[in-house]
């Protein structure tokens, strides 16, 4: 009998709807309005790579030790260097980082002894072509510049 009454008066339905109704308050809306409001990215986020430069003299911090390339499981970092005959040091010439194959595991970042390579909080990595996903030294040093759209 109770079951019948519950069925007729749709008790279950209203119980469920009550839960739905409770979350209608604007305070409880959790959807992020992404392009308008950029989400706050955690400090440790492993996003687009960056090759840090020394802020004082604008030179790269990288010492061309190749440790990041060795540490990478996907083998996607290529460090190009020439030996400077005067200082007997390696000078960084090119640095290629193929983000299309990168899984952002952070092993390269951990391996770098001078914190030159860093995965940053930039996350807008989409590109129109596969070549666009291969970062050269210039992009790595200046950071990615995603196209800004206006709506």
């Amino acid at each position: 009998m109770t079951k019948l009454l519950r069925t007729i008066f749709l008790v279950d339905l209203f119980q469920g709807l009550w839960v739905t109704f409770r979350t209608q308050h604007p305070k409880n809306i959790v959807t992020e309005q992404y392009p308008e409001h950029r989400p706050k990215i955690a400090e440790r986020y492993r996003g687009a790579p960056r090759l840090n430069i020394n802020p004082e003299n604008g030179q790269t911090l990288c010492i061309s030790c190749d440790l990041c390339a060795v540490a990478c499981p996907e083998n996607l970092i290529i460090v190009g260097w020439v030996r400077n005959p005067e200082t007997k040091r390696k000078d960084l010439v090119t640095f290629t980082y193929d983000t299309s194959r990168c899984m952002f595991c952070g092993l390269c970042e951990d391996a770098c002894p001078v914190d030159a390579l860093e995965l940053t909080q930039d996350f807008e990595l989409a590109s129109y072509s596969r070549e666009g996903a291969i970062f050269d030294r210039q992009i790595l040093e200046e950071g990615i510049k995603p196209t800004k759209y206006r709506f």
């Binding site: 990215i41 955690a42 400090e43 440790r44 986020y45 492993r46 899984m103 952002f104 595991c105 952070g106 951990d110 995965l119």
Partner: peptide, 24 residues
Amino acid sequence: FEKYCGARLTTHAFRIGGLQYETY
């Protein structure tokens, strides 16, 4: 997870022998 290790889904949070990151 994101705040702790920098990734949300494929976290790579643990390393052999312990952890890479201290808690925030």
